[in-house]
Write a protein that binds this DNA or RNA. Sequence first.
DNA 1: TCCATAGTTCTTTTT
DNA 2: GAACTATGGA
Length: 767
Amino acid sequence: MQLGGCGVPTDPSVDARYTDRPMPEPGILDVLNEEQRAAAAHLTGPALVLAGAGSGKTRTVVHRIAHLMAEHEVYPQQILAVTFTNKAAGELRERVETLVGPTARDVWVSTFHSACLRILRSYGSAIQLDPGFAIYDDGDQLDLLKEVLGTVVGMQDANPRVLRAVIDRAKSNLWTPALLAQEGAKRYGHAVSGVDLEQIVEVYERYQARLERANAVDFNDILGRTVELFTLHPEILERVQDRAVFVHVDEYQDTNAAQYRLTHLLSEKYRNLMVVGDPDQGIYAFRGADIQNILDFQRDYEDAVTFRLESNYRSIPNVLKVANAVIEANTGRLPKELRPVKEDDAPVRIYRAADHRAEADFVARMVEQVLQERGGDLNQFAVLYRTNSQSRALEESLRRAGLEARIVGGVGFYERREVKDALSYARAALNPGDDVSWRRILNRPKRGVGKTSEEKLAGWAARQRQPFSEAVRRAGEIVGGTAAEKRIAEFAALMQDLSEAADVMPAGQFVAHLLDASGMVRALREENSFEAQGRIDNLGELASAVEEWESSEGGTIQAFLDEAALMASVDDRAVAAANAGDVPDDAVTLMTLHNAKGLEFPVVFLVGLEEGLLPHRSSTGSLQEIEEERRLLYVGVTRAQDALYLVHCESRMTFGRTEPARPSRFLEDVPRDFLQEIDAFGSELDRSVRTPSRPKVSWPAARSAAAGDAPKAGGGYRGGEKVRHPKYGVGTVVGVSGEGAKMELTVVFDGAGAKRLLAKFANLQDA
DNA sequence: TCCATAGTTCTTTTT
DNA sequence: GAACTATGGA
């Protein structure tokens, strides 16, 4: 699908043709409910769709698009739909295609980033971007920033991550360095995150200059430079506008200033803008998203029509009760209550685990149990957590139980060192200005060019204002007479060969050649280790992914690099082939709460519901931050269709240190009788036992009252406690139920696994 | 220039 | 507990 040259009528006179039709139309919209149908039948002008979780938002957009095409003669080439992830885009396109057939392929469905990247590849030369410009990801940004920091007085020891965060934030607000100086001073004073504002501005300026000199853009530039392009070249904007007569923006609550501006620019010619979202699911303020964008839509577009979708088709009533209770605690929200359509119900369960291991074992055990009880496959399960680092224990427990796990996100395939190196070769071959890539591969694999030589080259490049690759080419003049000189010359010859190869070889062949000629694979083979073999396998998978990409999509290596750069998770569409080897088609899904947005699963586990994790310790500084964390929990809860397990630990390991953990404050917002407490085996615990004479005490307080000071004699056991059994040895108490003579303990023994014991007879000692 | 070792920082969250 | 980085000896 090419921009511009695809037979788009220059003036489709939409306003005249598509207004004043009687409503509702027969046909396509019949399957929708009343709320959905009203929104989907909307024709022209701005519209806001406030869509609660699970209310059929995508369905509504899909039918609206189909309706426009099938019954109002709108060309697919006039429709643009912007989604948040590549995955959502693929799904949307597929569903429209199911409804209206293959012409749906001409509907432009894309993320903001992919759409803008395509525009920049087509028209970027108008703002001094060479067609082969590189995309710098987080790691590249950091590398470049480290270099820049070295050149600014007093910034040598500054943390590049902090600077990156500030610059990213400025860019997502569309602030140039000058604007950052101005606006930053207004909002933050003279220092941001403890760094002097003037110095930050200086770093930002130099960083940006270096990016532009390298013919590169970072992620935020993909949006920001597109805005720049549109502003400086209205004729280009207009061509794109004609490709976007009807604009849809999904997850509008997560748009930042740059995306807001783009939305406005794209839709201002025809004003057929439909934005869809849910302010309660805004979870990206940390990267500049502003919920105010959706809250102010009616103010921005006074003639806007608002539609509300509040019937929830996804979740059982108890899940929605919990969800509503959680989100009601937020202030300043539009009142909204999810109404269940489903009638079947089951309790939402809560489990208190001893530590992250017990938590993970519990999840594995429940998965097995549910499989036994109701059958089905592993794809029905999802485990959601706040931080990626929580995935390891979960993965281990599941694997130990023989259950496949699929981790979405995390350290992606394209961020693995060897893969990144290989891609850097490709980038360097395509773009002699890409200093970060050139420097990365200079001595990788090791070819005897050390830090000293590298710095001499870099110093020369900086003084001469030349790209690093030029320094490599002229190494003789710079490091003449040293041992490294010859090695660098060989490297220069290699790169000369590769850049010629990039022009003449098809993508797959080029990557295969690069892997061979660079010596990467050879060096790994010589290492002869288990780990090196894994890396070789990854490189092999990369080669097949490119091959596959080339034969199925007919893509160039440049297009492959673009796709890889914008790919959030490895199982996103085309390049997923890269990981085809180890992604099973039946597996429990593990991912962060952020990644889970927009998805649904029959059985959901929310783990790590503790203070410090959710809300995360670094997001407790302001009410806004805490409320965003609460929305994150809300997003998690509303992913569940039929069963929901909430899990928190009594102690958790952070930075390799085990520390006591308190249940999340958000659990206090959920009335206790909305939750059924269970033990490590899923058996229901008797509530009256756990809250003696204090029925109104909310969750966390009740916990300490019940377990905290109980005497040891008489069986005052509590979860997390280490005990010794005469036969089974040392173990950890993971569950307590009943009282007195009937008190039962669930103990996970280090050697013998989990056992259920009557406390009275177990003959346990402290361990 | 490279390698082993000790020390340090690190975890939010993602296009 | 891992991944990265500084250091000193070969």
